[in-house]
């Protein structure tokens, strides 16, 4: 079974809220200096799902990402985790695109890369939380796109997909090829060994640009984007908490219960 996993490199999602700043004129998020870039958590779950399928059923696993040179770190981590091949789509023409242009570029490279059975992506990225690109790829390739997916297994030629719905799960049988947006609950990503990290650090990442795809500059990046960012800002939040104190803190529980009762909240 040949699997494509799309990954996005994002800013560390554990950055404390107080560290966020925005350049309103440039409409850019200013990240704290020294902050680390990481593989989007849901994409790591998708990669883990892909690796487990590969271990059971064989085949080749390719990771693809769109971004600049920094993204090589994330792709090398994916190789160290067990991916067979990594492709980076890096071209100034791709800059400032939106979900549509990103999906368009990724769909083109997936077509170029040859046959596949499954595309796995995180259900959304922790920076934009949009959850669009994998469904865009599915639409452009004309295949089923299912989100959010808890679990995927393969029996014979069919995929069994567990999709999260309100209060439970839908169990679907899907004919591949299909694109799935993986959620975080089931696939805890593995930690690559130091040895694999060292080996992956030396391995080659295929870098492709606009000229390698059947697309023109007007279709991608800022000129192809259909969504315009009008304003970026931070909403200040003032705390209005009333702290209930007691020493020892065992008494605070009793005081809290009484306060809630006085306020007719319980």
């Amino acid at each position: 079974m040949d699997i494509i996993v799309t990954v996005k490199q994002v800013s560390d999602p554990e950055i404390p809220p107080a560290f966020f700043k925005v350049d309103e004129a440039a409409r850019q998020v200013l990240l704290p200096p020294g902050m680390s870039w990481v593989m989007n958590g849901y994409d790591a779950n998708a990669l883990e799902a892909g690796l487990r399928l590969k271990e059971l059923h064989g085949g080749k696993l390719t990771v693809i990402s769109l971004g600049d040179y920094k993204v090589r770190d994330t792709l090398k981590r994916a190789l160290a985790m067990g991916a067979d091949q990594a492709i980076l789509l890096d071209d100034p023409a791709f800059a400032d695109g939106d979900s549509y242009t990103t999906a368009l570029v990724l769909a083109e490279v997936i077509k170029k890369n040859g046959s596949f059975d499954l595309i796995l992506s995180g259900r959304q990225a922790s920076d934009t939380d949009a959850g669009q690109v994998h469904l865009g790829i599915a639409e452009l390739l004309g295949i089923p796109g299912i989100v959010p997916v808890l679990k995927v297994e393969k029996t014979g030629d069919t995929l069994q997909v567990e999709r999260l719905v309100e209060g439970g799960l839908q169990v679907l049988e899907v004919q591949p090829p299909a694109a799935l947006g993986i959620s975080s609950e089931f696939y805890e990503p593995r930690n690559p060994s130091v040895r694999n990290l060292v080996t992956a650090g030396r391995s080659q990442i295929q870098i492709l640009g606009l000229a390698d795809l059947g697309l023109t500059a007007s279709q991608v990046g800022k000129s192809g984007a259909r969504c315009q960012l009008r304003r970026l800002f931070i909403e200040a939040r003032e705390s209005c908490v009333e702290l209930i104190e007691s020493d020892p803190s065992a008494g605070a529980g009793i005081k809290l219960a009484e306060r809630l009762h006085d306020e007719k909240l319980i």
Partner: peptide, 26 residues
């Protein structure tokens, strides 16, 4: 705590038994 109306800074293990007991009584 930025979102809370009332808060207790403390170990939940110490706070909860009293809270549960007093809620039941009230």
């Amino acid at each position: 705590f930025k979102y809370a109306r009332y808060g207790v800074v403390g170990d939940w293990k110490e706070v909860l038994p009293g809270l549960i007991q007093r809620i039941k009584e009230l």
